[in-house]
Design a protein around this nucleic acid. Structure first.
Lengths: 199, 199
DNA sequence: GAACCCATGTAAGTTGTTACATGATTGA
DNA sequence: TCAATCATGTAACAACTTACATGGGTTC
């Protein structure tokens, strides 16, 4: 149940609404966790039932925006999750790779398009994460600013450092995928040429 | 519905049983797709209902091993999937990363363990994929041998090349993760030392 | 007043996990 | 004969997706 803990984690930065959380969890390539509002709202209510968060609707709020706030029990649960549990790496389920394996009986053109689409996809991600990394390093990344404001004294450089490391990881991943696919395209081009020469 | 197409794809290499498929989908770090037998057996029956595969139990087979074979309709469906559909990249859901973000209020020791576990995990994967890559290059990788046997004439080097590229991708990913976490550990060690000097 | 954003919700369906259940064969 | 492996299956549950639904606020 990672959504639960992702929500608790975000709520340690500031109390906010399900709508805002849904925005955070949708934007920027899903940040590190994607979830839809139809999953977030019920989960927040379950968290409230469990006493891990509280919620209230502002007195004069006609829209009915419900603001969620993490409780001490919620912080304890998050702390327990962070301390006790090792990261559970999910099983590999890579559509791109299984497609690639079975593309071996398709025309070269189809294979080429596959790698090009892969590069496009990861270039988009690279752009997003590079921008965020840049904003983080300049200290203007909104989420960083908010988190620095609530960070325990003396932990500021850890907060910023870990965000930078996390973003650097995304950048490295995207770069790796692009390099890989570019190499593949080169191989494919060489193979194509070789095939023509021999025929 | 990728499991469907992953199963169809594997069945183009050779007719086999749900049990064997479940083994393939479990071993070797899940290869590129993990699925449990309790998901595979029902899916195979659904594929049979849809006319995409046929199945039969060998005459003298007391164990009741049911061998599935892809039909022309199944091949057509796989072909359609490979040709028409672009790869659908799933939304980002990265437990490791969200854990890392919220570790910023934990002791340095806990953070260090996180990166060490990350390195361990990816070293294991690296070993598996390196071995497979090696076996593939030497032409002794069982799945490669089988697939080469059914490959259309003239496509052998594409078959082997794409498998190599796919495995190379897994190796690169694992290496990237290890490099990333090693850098993070170095940063953490430097930070720890700096902290002690200042205090 | 139309279009768009803010804000929450439900319901149906799919996918995937975990646990339970059964029975045959093989090898120590 | 006991344990491991072969082989398939079901049932309950959890996670996630997609679509539908509602209503207030803002802006042109």
């Amino acid at each position: 149940m990672s959504l639960r803990h992702a929500l608790l984690g975000f709520l340690t930065t500031e109390p906010t609404s399900g709508y805002r959380l849904a925005q955070e969890f949708s934007e920027s390539a899903g940040w590190f966790w994607y979830a839809s509002h139809s999953q977030i709202h019920p989960e927040l209510r379950r968290l409230e039932e469990a006493g891990l968060v509280t919620s209230e609707v502002g007195a004069g709020d006609a829209r009915g925006t419900r603001t969620y706030r993490i409780t001490d029990a919620g912080r304890a649960e998050l702390d327990r999750w962070l301390k006790d549990g090792a990261t559970e790496y999910p099983p590999v389920r890579d559509v791109e790779r299984i497609r690639l394996l079975f593309l071996d009986q398709q025309p070269l053109e189809v294979i080429r398009k596959h790698f090009e689409a892969h590069i496009d996809h990861h270039r988009r991600l690279l752009q997003i994460y590079s921008d965020q990394l840049d904003a983080n390093q300049r200290g203007v990344f909104p989420r960083l600013v908010k988190r620095l404001a609530v960070a325990a004294p003396g932990t500021e450089d850890i907060v910023q450092g870990l965000k930078e490391i996390a973003l650097k990881g995304q950048v490295m991943r995207a770069e790796t995928e692009i390099t890989w696919a570019e190499n593949a395209l080169r191989w494919l081009a060489g193979h194509d040429a070789a095939g023509r020469v021999q025929s």
